[in-house]
Amino acid sequence: MHLLVIDWWLILEKSLLIFGIIGLSFFIAMYTTYAERKVAAWLQDRRGPNRAGPFGIFQPLADGGKLFFKEEIIPLASNKPLFILGPALAMITALLTSTVIPWATPFITKGGDVIAMQVADVDMGILLVFSIVSVGVYGIMIGGWASNNKFSLMAAIRGASQMVSYELPMGLALIAVLFMTGSLKMSEIVGNQIENGWHIIYQPLGFIIFFVCALAECNRTPFDLPEAENELNFGYHQEYSSMKLGFYLFAEYINMFISSAVMATLYFGGYDIPFVNEASWGLNSFWMTVISFSVLMAKISFFLFVFLWIRWTIPRFRYDQLMNLGWKKLIPLALLNMIITAAVILLLKK
């Protein structure tokens, strides 16, 4: 019997890539918590964490250790399996979205094999990210409901309705980008930008809409109503303690990281190095991969900083303002943006 013809090298290569990306996500998420506190301190003229290690750089490790060793409490009146499923789902969906992002230029080995720095370059590309994001609501909803706490339930329902509402203008803003590329593949979206210039030049309005929606999807200020402390105690993760709480908080930071990566890829040229023609440098493939990866990381860090900056600058919206902004302002704007883009593309083609 001939069992399973598998290209083991491919499996090995992809597993290394997957573990690398997951490790990277955790690392970035850890240090975003540190950056958040440092940026907050900076904006408020404080020092921020500075005890654990030089400049407090071991602070995230200390926080993580603390969360691991805390007592784990599962409320008696909660629905136990779903109570555990909630944070797990939040984490899984946060980590899954990174599958289709191209992280760097493909690495070409000496034997001439091309290793793409992307877990899967599927035909659906960006739509796959959207499908995972749309499933991400369940982590919050299940956790909030299973806690059997009225505040948690309110927060979960707020969070879910917010995410469902803001997915619409996000998708509409994305359609304009897809009109320009003519493909859903992430690699082709990046390729199109390397050839014709970044999408931000042609789609400034679309980017602003996308960015606002990304803030709302990540439950970040000014859209952090699911976690509004002063009205809902602590939000959907009020009953959670120990590492389950840690998963929810971590998932938020990973979501921030991935949405920054998606924004950089869709609108800011992905791993493209601005203003230069890097192909003429004649560097070998390994260094090209390293440089393009660092360029993408620099773009991502910038977006992460903007996320933090906004959090400590803009106060929270009221719930009706949030819904009005989403349904009455962003959706018409995104529709307008889409129609104008389509019309211009049609005119230019003639």
Partner: peptide, 26 residues
Amino acid sequence: AQFLAVVNIIVYAGAIMVLFLFVIML
């Protein structure tokens, strides 16, 4: 049928089922 698969998740699993859950939870 990749497109159908992804749309099935976005529309049914991601949107319609959320509304189901809403109603049942409330």
